[in-house]
Nucleic acid binder design. Sequence first.
DNA 1: GCCAACGTTGGC
DNA 2: GCCAACGTTGGC
Length: 153
Amino acid sequence: MKSEPEVFSFEDLLAAKGRRAFWDGVRNYQARNLMRDAMAPGDRVLFYHSNADPTGVAGLCEVVKGAQSDPTQFDPEDEHHDPRSDPLEPTWVGVTVRALAALPRFVTLADLKAEPRLAGMGCLARGNRLSVQPVTPKEWGIVIGLGGLAGKY
DNA sequence: GCCAACGTTGGC
DNA sequence: GCCAACGTTGGC
C-alpha cells in the first residue's frame, strides 16, 4: 500500500494509537476492489512511501479489519468528499492496518528495481500507479530480506 | 460505445 | 516543476 509520507508516513502509523489506522482516501476503483475483495484480517502489507525522497518500502503492517465504508466520502470538508456516493451503498471503502515493524534497512525503489528476482513485481511495472496492489509470498520474502528482516515475518 | 479533454499519480 | 502514463468525464 502506498502513501505519501508527507500526508501519512509509516512513522505516523507507528505513532498512532494501537499502531493502527483506517486506510482512507482511496478513490480508485481497482484499488478499492482489492481492499474489498482481496484483503482480510491477518494479511500482511508492505507500507510504501510514494512521492518521497527516497521512495520505497518503509515498514510492515497487517490488516486487522477488512473493508468498511470510508467516512471521508461523506464529509463535505474532506478533500476526498464524494457527493455522488450513497450513504446506503457507499462507493468507497478502506481497511484498517496495524504496524508490525519498521524495516531496519529502508528498501528504496532503486533497490527493488536492482533485484532480479523482483522483475515481475506489480509495483515495478511500467505505468502502474495503483496505490493498493497485491504482493506474492515470494516477493514479500525477498523484500523483507532486503529490508533486513529475512524470515522474521 | 467512441474518444478528446481533463485530472491525477508518481518518478525524476 | 516536468512529464509520461493512466483513469475519468461527458459530448456526441
